[in-house]
Design a protein around this nucleic acid. Sequence first.
DNA 1: ATTTCAATCAAACGTTCGTTTGAATCAAAC
DNA 2: GTTTGATTCAAACGAACGTTTGATTGAAAT
Lengths: 209, 209
Amino acid sequence: MASPDTRTQLLDAAEHLFAERGYRGTSVRAITDLAGANLAAVGYHFGSKAELMSAVARRVVEPINAAQCAGLDRLLARTPDPAVADLVEAFTGPLFDEMQAGDEGGARTSRLIVTILGDPAEEVRSWTGPAEDTVRERYLAAFGRALPDLSPEELRFRMRGILAVTAVDRVEVYQQSSPTCPSPVAGEAARHWAITFLTAALSAPPTRT
Amino acid sequence: MASPDTRTQLLDAAEHLFAERGYRGTSVRAITDLAGANLAAVGYHFGSKAELMSAVARRVVEPINAAQCAGLDRLLARTPDPAVADLVEAFTGPLFDEMQAGDEGGARTSRLIVTILGDPAEEVRSWTGPAEDTVRERYLAAFGRALPDLSPEELRFRMRGILAVTAVDRVEVYQQSSPTCPSPVAGEAARHWAITFLTAALSAPPTRT
DNA sequence: ATTTCAATCAAACGTTCGTTTGAATCAAAC
DNA sequence: GTTTGATTCAAACGAACGTTTGATTGAAAT
């Protein structure tokens, strides 16, 4: 169906450059140069730069979504009403796992996610598949059962806080670490700090209105 | 020293467009068109597009920094060791004040801040003046006294969480609200939700290592 | 040997970008 | 009335952009 190599190398190069310089800051020529491919390869394999970005995003987000989903399944298999701390860990864990797994790949992944989410262009942000929404809704329901006193609106607010804290933290780690050494120590510490931080935040009593 | 109008109108137009489409997504031509000025006006008044961005950022951030500083002064005048909740409110308050103050200007301000902070280009992120660092260090010291059991590293992590939660929330509000109606109700509720959320998070016991 | 077809390639397409130029404008100073 | 100096203007600059084209490759199918 496709070349076994250049297509993947284009995805790799694009993921790297999009994370480092953003979508608009990365030219198709820079991608093909890094991939060792011809300039026209992007058009041939993906159709356009935007569709390449979409493919990159899908490749990055899918395993995270799957891991989050599996983590929730594992929790629910044990007990129908997991504790807040366990839910937080299951949700944020995959984001941290990505990091220490690869050679600086994981922090870059987070950087890429923030680059996408933070980009004002609809074109860049519009790849959010239905799978992502499904996972979020499932966690929302689980958190709702664990925190029954919270209004749906405030619960949504707090869940948004989870993503904000983890994503921003990972970006900071990526920006400060040298390109070659991602400092896994800081990454592992941040993982536990984030769970402590977010569990306390989620578990706070409802804001009295 | 300068025209009373076009310079300011360029700043207004640039602030609007940078917030909505990002730095790279905004052309100098779009700015001058919206400002009703000539294309060359940006070069004449600011030197370059990058310096215009720097001027916009400074104009947006300075009043926030000043308000954060004044809020801390007010707290310290009352007691040398303010409570965590009061510190959180003094720090996040100015970010929320900006919103309900103006006609959709405040949420846009937050959108702009996130656009800047999230932009991978060093050129865009490098405007952080010394004033910003000073304010952050002062709050860091105050939080340190209020939370003496926390290691400096974990305290820094938690303070980064404050910015992450407030900024990301404000962006969400901006993206969902119609351009004309920023829904100040949601803004006022989010303000209290954020204080609750962050106070609990900051006050969590130290992560045991 | 010929056909076939996906893949790669150099080259060019037209557009948009940030910036620069040099003349035109206009009120204040002389 | 003339000069001055700051400001605005239309026009063009070269560079970089995403995309398209049409020829070329090379291995598998006939």
